[in-house]
Nucleic acid binder design. Sequence first.
DNA 1: CGCCAACTTGATGGCTGTCAAGTCAGGTGG
DNA 2: CCACCTGACTTGACAGCCATCAAGTTGGCG
Lengths: 257, 257
Amino acid sequence: MPPKMAVKEAPARDAPFSVAPFAVIKAACSNCNLRELCLPFGLSNDEMTHLDALISVRKRIKRGDSLYRVGEPFEYIYAIRSGFFKTDVLLEDGRDQVTGFQMAGELLGLDGICTERHTCNAVALEDSEVCHIPFFRLENLSREIQALQHHFHKIMSREIVRDHGVMTLLGMMCVEERIAAFLLNLSQRFTARGFSPAEFNLRMTREEIGSYLGLKLETVSRAFSRFQEEGLIAVQQRHIHILDIPGLKEIMARRNH
Amino acid sequence: MPPKMAVKEAPARDAPFSVAPFAVIKAACSNCNLRELCLPFGLSNDEMTHLDALISVRKRIKRGDSLYRVGEPFEYIYAIRSGFFKTDVLLEDGRDQVTGFQMAGELLGLDGICTERHTCNAVALEDSEVCHIPFFRLENLSREIQALQHHFHKIMSREIVRDHGVMTLLGMMCVEERIAAFLLNLSQRFTARGFSPAEFNLRMTREEIGSYLGLKLETVSRAFSRFQEEGLIAVQQRHIHILDIPGLKEIMARRNH
DNA sequence: CGCCAACTTGATGGCTGTCAAGTCAGGTGG
DNA sequence: CCACCTGACTTGACAGCCATCAAGTTGGCG
């Protein structure tokens, strides 16, 4: 699960996805308010300038569009500047599974390094903006800047640990535990970005949540309803208000079983 | 799923776990027969000598002993020279889940980079031998040697892709598909090491297989029995003989549903 | 030889998937 | 402005798969 990081910006309550005014098209890492969450973490100003120089392209991706798709040649790592993505993989027979949801400050594309082709699809769940980081140049630079090298390794390792968390979730948790874990994880990540831990809007459908958690959409819906009856959360379509965070944590840790 | 790699050694049929004679205690990457599978892949002889210099410790781990445990400070990446390991994570309430099985030529410990503490336990499932690679020295060296840097990134990325594979397995496959995928994966990895694709000994219990696949041990046992009745495999305790690889592949791809 | 852990097999039950019918919210066009 | 349409969501009834519980078997080891 993601580590807590200091946030510089004042928390904006309950508007996690409001699109920031886009005056600064030439935005660079050095003045990006995500720099403490993203790749430049721990770099000096001088080092950050070198990283800025790599990022030639910043692109907007419209809701529903793909950033990359399975089989495409791998060339870039992508840093999410704003917005929300899902990654999913397809099986031969047409079934597919969501492997993750990514938000601002997180990296996309790490799956492509090993085969030099992407192994999953990355789809924007809302209008988003993404920094393109040419991977071979990132490797070059991280041979020069130790802090960058080390932080990049940490990010990859964090992805591995996150995946292990999902594996335990899928392997041994029941419906309510999975949903509780999912909501708490989102809450934590919104908090790290300066938003309310208790109130947010989901960007994904029940079906996408279910696909991620190994459940059917009806099961997700029923779990939300049950949590609402028990006073743990208030749900109104995609708007979530968590009323009892400790209660959700108890469910996740199975202290009630 | 792991990529196919060339193997230099002549295949030794059906003895994947026989312990090699241990004449060369001073074994180095340069004369290790796993070098094409392991970290030194793609390095020149000269570069490999530098990698050798990092590896001060080679340790034997007895069956059942831990290489590292959750919470211990992270210091080394470990390369398996011989033997077989499992990694598992524990939940607060005592439940635990196997997150992977590792064999010769694979790396252990990548989970520890992000927090500088290990986030899982690594336990030997048979007497094993492991090279200790000090991580900070590996980072230093991979700032010097581009090929090493790049291959290390590929290995981390491969781990992420592997985990995504397990997530799809846990999220949307039924019992028989999981077991078929598990057996085919082992078969593939043994093949890459020069062993028979069709015949091998499991090093793990039914319970450990079940834990990895999100199933109970009885369910694993029943699936093995069913495959045997159908003539797909022959099982005798931990000895597996795959009789019909295409048949298993069909089950995995759900062409029969 | 006897013990024990690992494994197999059977009977039963509960959880979650499946199928189906309806509700809600937002968007479009008349 | 409202009627309608559509996709997303909710809720109910039922079924099937896998977990659970239980009893027995096998093989390795002291």
